[in-house]
Design a protein around this nucleic acid. Structure first.
Lengths: 95, 95
DNA sequence: GTATCCTGTAAAGAGACGCATTACAAATCA
DNA sequence: TGATTTGTAATGCGTCTCTTTACAGGATAC
């Protein structure tokens, strides 16, 4: 049923990645080439992961690109699904 | 090596989905609850698929949500990878 | 061959978001 | 106590989604 709300990427970065790296937020931000306030916003789920940011993370963490942007997409989709909306009728293929 | 550029979702919608539905762009837009110019922009790759739009498409097309937003993420990531950028050194785990 | 429909696209504007810069206050820690 | 680290706010710029309105070109039908 796939019904568990996916985490914001920032949560994983803050709780798992950063501790394992043993870096301060400021040091990690500097390494990524972004500002400390912005990384803080990422970590605290006040900003999302862009494709650009995904690449930087994948390079810094030695991972194949796409992990973080897919997490973000899953998060965004879940959030949008929680919004009240009027449903759309399914279409059928033409005769 | 995973090195083939992923299509923009609009391309698939325009070339595969719309013809199979047998709908005009205007009719499809109306069904989705968006404007015709905006759907035209989607189809011609001048705008991206948002989480909101993914949900509308998945409902209209009878698909599980996430297909289109993941296509968009793959597309965005590929585009970002094509941009010239300065690489970031990999970090090692703390001692 | 004229009228209708469909299409792509442009302009203008609202609202949201990414990201930078700067700044400050609270918390941690030496 | 003093230095470091952190979260966050304000401001601003650029970009993007999406709407409304409009227009011009192509296709279809009479």
């Amino acid at each position: 049923m796939r019904m568990h709300n996916p985490p914001h990427p920032g949560e994983i970065l803050k709780e798992d990645v950063l501790p394992e790296l043993g870096l301060t937020v400021g040091a990690f931000a500097a390494h990524l080439g972004i500002t400390r306030p912005h990384l803080s916003n990422l970590l605290n789920q006040h900003a999302g992961i862009t494709a650009e940011m995904d690449i930087r993370l994948s390079e810094a963490l030695g991972q194949p690109p796409g992990l973080w942007i897919r997490m973000q997409a899953a998060y965004d989709l879940w959030q949008a699904e929680q919004q009240p909306r009027q449903h759309i009728a399914p279409l059928h293929v033409a005769a």
